[in-house]
Design a protein around this nucleic acid. Structure first.
Lengths: 144, 144
DNA sequence: CTCTCTGCAAAGCATTTGCACATTG
DNA sequence: CAATGTGCAAATGCTTTGCAGAGAG
């Protein structure tokens, strides 16, 4: 909880209030992993039993809009949310939507240069590599 | 239509039949741009009026599962589908889901190395950079 | 003749939204 | 007390799926 100050900072700087629900949602994302709305609700309810799913979604959308959270959606499944903590890369399975974090060992100015060239505001976690995760990878054109 | 042979090749090599519906869907994606299922349906119906939306989704999922199509999903909107034509990068807006293609000027062995290290089967279009597109980019923490 | 594919329509489900009340500054 | 946030529940809309008939090999 000592570095939750750091996590909360972004919200405090924004035009949004830091309510106890929002703080709890940020706390639920502090493990740096990827959770869907349902899982986040469970984790938040451990501390705040009354919270509703609508609030989870509304808050996650706010956090996303101010860049504190990244979203990974894939067809036919719930989106996965991750707090923007430290700079790192992602491996996303094009089949099942699995997301794996990869530590950054070297700078990647190329990605940011690309983004800038097209007027994009780059975020911290800039690089996403898509492919088949080991579980989904199959020798040939075998479905799913 | 002369390079549709190339597009169709992947399907022919798979265990799936190359029906006229599937060929039409591939043709609808030949422009290399990003379309949602509804738009693809419209384009396909110009040639095959009877096609249903269910077939579009079923086919797109097959194409995705054999690597012929890439999907970009974002919360609160329809997924966008793109044929895997030439190697290129993507800029994805974390706010509105806008996808912009970026030509590849230099090789990116780093991304593929990352994927391999984690047992991922890399696909052709490997690099996705997430950020705010020019329309969504705002000076400060202003929502949406 | 068997297996695969398609159209249709219904179902499923994640996400969004309206509204009344609570909370915050 | 004015503005923002929340809970609840209903609505929305994309996507999936079951089934019967059509089509392909």
């Amino acid at each position: 909880m000592q570095d939750s100050k750091g996590v909360d900072a972004g919200l405090l700087q924004s035009r949004y209030r830091l309510t106890k629900q929002r703080a709890a949602i940020l706390r639920a994302l502090e493990d740096g992993r990827h959770h869907n709305a349902e899982t986040i609700l469970e984790r938040v309810r451990e501390h705040l039993p009354g919270v509703s799913l609508g609030t989870i979604y509304r808050t996650l959308d706010i956090l996303r809009s101010i860049g504190l959270v990244q979203v990974f959606s894939h067809a036919g499944g719930a989106a996965k949310y991750e707090a923007t903590l430290e700079k790192h890369h992602h491996l996303v399975c094009t089949n099942c939507g699995e997301v794996v974090n990869v530590a950054v060992n070297e700078a990647l100015p190329l990605a940011q240069a690309l983004a800038q060239d097209h007027g994009f505001d780059g975020v911290d976690c800039a690089l996403v590599v898509t492919g088949r995760c080991p579980r989904c990878a199959r020798p040939n054109g075998v479905a799913n």
